[in-house]
Simulated scan of single mutants.
Amino acid sequence: MKFAYLIMGKIFDSNKDRAYIHNEISQIIGVSDMEEACKIAKELQNEGVDCIELCGGFGEEGARKIIDATENKIAVGFAVHLEEQNDIYKKLFGR
């Protein structure tokens, strides 16, 4: 299985912010926004990636956009946190 994890933040550039592990079967890619994320998701799909996981910053709405971008043909999931950590996350990410 080929796997990718996308993290999103204004500081990232998908051309430079990439790391590979396990003989490049798994990778982590930083993207700056949803537009770049959708573009990268399509590229990953074309490269044969089977599963894309998303950082919590994507949320359900972002996950749905990635699912749409990949035509619901590969597995897409996203990280969440427990409700009791909402205040910590709001402080950290400003939401």
Score class of each variant (00 low, 15 high):
Phe93Ala: 09
Phe3Pro: 00
Glu36Tyr: 04
Asn23Ser: 09
Gly77Ser: 15
Ile40Cys: 01
Glu47Gly: 10
His81Trp: 14
Glu53Phe: 09
Asn86Leu: 13
Phe12Val: 03
Glu47Met: 09
Glu43Trp: 12
Gln85Met: 09
Lys91Glu: 10
Glu24Lys: 15
His81Leu: 11
Asn46Phe: 03
Asp17Leu: 06
Lys42Ala: 00
Phe78Asp: 03
Ser26His: 04
Lys39Thr: 11
Met8Thr: 07
Arg18Thr: 06
Cys55Gly: 00
Ala69Ile: 08
His22Cys: 09
Asp50Met: 13
Leu54Lys: 14
Ile66Asp: 04
Phe78Met: 05
Glu61Asn: 08
Ile28Asn: 00
Phe12Asn: 12
Lys16Gln: 07
Gly62Arg: 15
Phe3Ile: 15
Tyr5Cys: 05
Gly48Ile: 12
Thr70Gln: 04
Asp50Ser: 14
Phe78His: 10
Gly56Cys: 08
Phe58Pro: 05
Tyr89Lys: 03
Glu35Ala: 08
Ser32Gly: 08
Gln85Ser: 12
Arg18Ala: 05
Arg18Pro: 04
Glu61Trp: 02
Met1Leu: 10
Gln85Ile: 04
Glu71Ser: 09
Ala4Cys: 09
Met8Ser: 00
Asp68Gln: 14
Met8Glu: 00
Gly9Thr: 05
Val80Pro: 05
Lys39Asp: 01
Asn15Leu: 10
Val31Ser: 02
Glu60Thr: 12
Glu24Pro: 02
Leu82Ser: 11
Glu53Gly: 06
Ala79Gln: 02
Met8Gln: 04
Ile21Arg: 08
Ser32Arg: 15
Glu61Ser: 05
Glu35Asp: 01
Arg95Gly: 12
Ile88Gln: 02
Ile66Val: 13
Asn23Lys: 11
Leu6Phe: 01
Ala19Lys: 15
Gln85Arg: 11
Glu60Ala: 15
Met1Asn: 10
Arg18Phe: 07
Glu71Asp: 13
Ile11His: 09
Val76His: 11
Ala4Arg: 00
Phe93Cys: 10
Ile67Ala: 08
Asn72Glu: 15
Cys51Gly: 05
Met34Val: 10
Glu61Cys: 04
